[in-house]
Simulated assay, not measured.
Amino acid sequence: MEAKSHVSVNDEMPVEIPPIPQSHGIEAFKDIVFGSIAGITGKYIEYPFDTVKVRLQSQPDTLPLRYNGPLDCFRQSIRADGFRGLYRGISAPLFGAAVENSSLFFSYRISQRLLQSMVYSSAEPLPFSGLLISGAISGAFTSLLLTPIELVKCKMQVPVSAAGYKPGPLTTIASVFRHHGVLGFWHGQMGTLIRETGGSAAWFGSYEAVSAFFRKYSPTASSAIPHGTDKPPLPLHQQMLAGAAAGVGYNFFFYPADTIKSRMQTEDVALSGGNRSFWTVGKALWQQQGLKGLYRGCGITVGRAAPSSAFIFSVYEGLRFYVG
Results as ranks from 00 to 15, higher is better:
Val176Ile: 14
Asn251Cys: 10
Gly273Ile: 07
Ile225His: 09
Gln238Cys: 11
Lys43Arg: 12
Gly282His: 03
Thr171Tyr: 00
Leu285Glu: 12
Leu86Asn: 09
Leu63Gln: 09
Gly198Pro: 03
Met156Arg: 11
Ser77Tyr: 04
Tyr87Ile: 01
Asp31Ile: 05
His227Leu: 07
Ala209Phe: 15
Arg109Asp: 13
Val160Asn: 04
Phe34Trp: 15
Ser314Cys: 09
Tyr44Pro: 01
Lys283Ala: 11
Arg109Cys: 09
Gly35Asp: 13
Gln189Arg: 00
Pro159Arg: 09
Leu63Thr: 06
Ser143Leu: 03
Ala212Trp: 06
Ile37Cys: 05
Val269Met: 05
Phe49Thr: 12
Gly82Val: 13
Pro64Glu: 13
Gly228Glu: 04
Ala162Asp: 15
Ser8Gln: 07
Thr220Tyr: 03
Ser143Trp: 01
Arg113Gln: 15
Glu150Val: 14
Gln57Gly: 08
Val52Lys: 03
Thr147Arg: 01
Arg88Val: 07
Leu132Met: 15
Ala270Asp: 14
Pro14Ala: 10
Pro232Ala: 14
Ser222Met: 08
Ala162Met: 05
Pro14Met: 03
Ile17Phe: 08
Thr147Ile: 10
Ser211Cys: 13
Pro219Gly: 05
Met190Ala: 12
Phe49Lys: 02
Val302Cys: 15
Thr259Trp: 03
Arg84Pro: 00
His6Asn: 02
Phe95Ser: 05
Gly199Trp: 08
Val158Glu: 09
Phe185Pro: 00
Thr229Met: 08
Gly299Thr: 13
Lys231Leu: 12
Gly69Ala: 00
Gly42Phe: 02
Gly274Ala: 00
Arg113His: 12
Leu144Cys: 07
Ala305Tyr: 02
Gly39Ser: 10
Phe185Lys: 03
Tyr120Leu: 06
Ala310Gln: 07
Val315Ala: 08
Pro127Ile: 03
Val281Gln: 03
Ala38Leu: 06
Lys166Thr: 15
Ser175Pro: 00
Lys43Cys: 15
Thr41Ile: 11
Ala3Glu: 12
Gln287Ser: 09
Ser309Phe: 13
Gly135Thr: 11
Thr172Pro: 08
Phe34Ser: 06
Glu46Leu: 06
Pro235Val: 09
Ile45Cys: 11
Tyr250Pro: 00
Leu151Pro: 01
Pro226Cys: 14
Gly293Met: 09
Val54Met: 10
Leu56Pro: 07
Gly25Trp: 13
Gln189Thr: 01
Phe29Ser: 11
Ala162Gly: 05
Pro307Cys: 09
Ser211Asn: 10
Ala38Val: 02
Ile133Cys: 08
Phe128Lys: 04
